[in-house]
């Protein structure tokens, strides 16, 4: 049998493999090039970018948890103009899909940031309506259908680029939010962002994070992510980029069986920077071993019990 086809199509954008570096864990694709070229990835979702530069939260911004981490960076980033002038030209010289990840305090910020990116070579705009670490905006948009709809609508009107809405798991029913963004013209959804969590130092009685609370990621959240991807896959027709605790090829295959067309990997990279490459190779091996010609053939192919 010839080599399986591991390329995927996400809202009209071809990724040579289904592995994307998750926003917030891979910067703007500069830091890991000492180890391997960015081209080994299917795509990179860049650090969450806002209209104006942001300083982020006071440290500590990270805490270790059983099989995961809590973070509260608070969207520190150099602003969309810096991204367009400095990072994007460098990224576009490489054969890797570039996903800009945008966030904002108000609807206008989202719309304006998307409008600026509309005239660039960005492949996809991922719209973060689920950041748990900023006081204004962020997850406040993503936890109600009305909020999710209004951001999606505004971004849709601001750009012709494919837009992918990043959903929060911190809701009662994620399928309602997914349906709401689908109805407003989203091209894809990505999920899950982090789960809100907290750690306390029992000696100082202080929360470890200066922000008191933060977003939980890593293998600890993986089963929650698989469940939500499966639920959303059953609820809407849009392609899903699945993420949340993936750290092996087996995890990625599981996420794709649940309904993800591609996956993002984040926290696991801190532990092993080579994880994205190992996952991509491992998916190919899984397909070969099981006589499957195309990776897209496994998407949503879980066989649930009746």
């Amino acid at each position: 049998m010839s080599r399986p086809d591991i390329s995927v199509d996400i809202c009209g954008v071809r990724l040579k493999n289904p592995v994307i570096a998750a926003s917030g864990t891979y910067g703007f694709g500069e830091e890991y090039t000492d180890l391997y070229p960015l081209e080994r990835l299917g795509g990179i979702s860049c650090k969450g970018t806002t209209l104006q530069p942001k300083d982020g939260n006071i440290p500590p911004r990270i805490a270790e948890t059983p099989s995961g981490i809590l973070n509260s960076v608070g969207l520190q980033n150099p602003g969309v103009e810096h991204f367009i002038k400095t990072d994007l030209p460098r990224l576009k010289k490489q054969d890797v899909a570039v996903i800009a990840n945008i966030a904002g305090a108000g609807i206008e910020d989202y719309a304006e940031t998307a409008a600026r990116l509309d005239e660039t070579d960005v492949d996809i705009i991922e719209v973060n309506i689920s950041c748990p670490n900023v006081k204004q905006g962020g997850a406040t948009w993503g936890v109600t259908c009305a909020g999710a709809e209004s951001v999606t609508k505004a971004v849709r009107n601001a750009t012709k680029k494919p837009i992918m809405i990043k959903l929060t798991p911190n809701v009662t029913d994620i399928t309602e939010i997914a349906r709401a963004v689908e109805a407003q013209g989203a091209d894809a959804v990505s999920l899950i962002n982090t789960l809100l969590g907290m750690r306390i130092d029992i000696n100082t009685r202080r929360p470890i994070l200066h922000n008191n609370v933060g977003g939980l990621s890593g293998p600890a959240v993986f089963p929650v992510a698989v469940r939500m991807v499966w639920q959303v896959h059953n609820a809407i027709k849009l392609p899903i980029v699945g993420m949340g605790g993936i750290s092996s090829a087996a995890d990625a295959v599981e996420m794709m069986l649940a309904g993800a067309s591609a996956v993002q990997i984040g926290t696991a990279i801190f532990n092993d920077p080579y994880v994205p490459i190992k996952v991509s190779q491992g998916i190919e091996r899984y397909l070969s071993d099981n006589g499957i010609a195309k990776v897209s053939d496994i998407v949503g192919q879980v066989r649930p019990w009746e």
């Binding site: 917030g24 910067g27 830091e31 890991y32 000492d34 981490i69 960076v73 801190f270 920077p273």
Partner: peptide, 26 residues
């Protein structure tokens, strides 16, 4: 010293504030 994530500059977890060239920078 600061609590770190990636250690290579990608995750901007280990922030510190400096005044450089007259400007506050994180």
């Amino acid at each position: 010293e600061q609590r770190m994530g990636c250690g290579v500059g990608a995750c901007v977890v280990c922030a510190c504030t400096v005044i450089r060239d007259g400007k506050k920078q994180v």
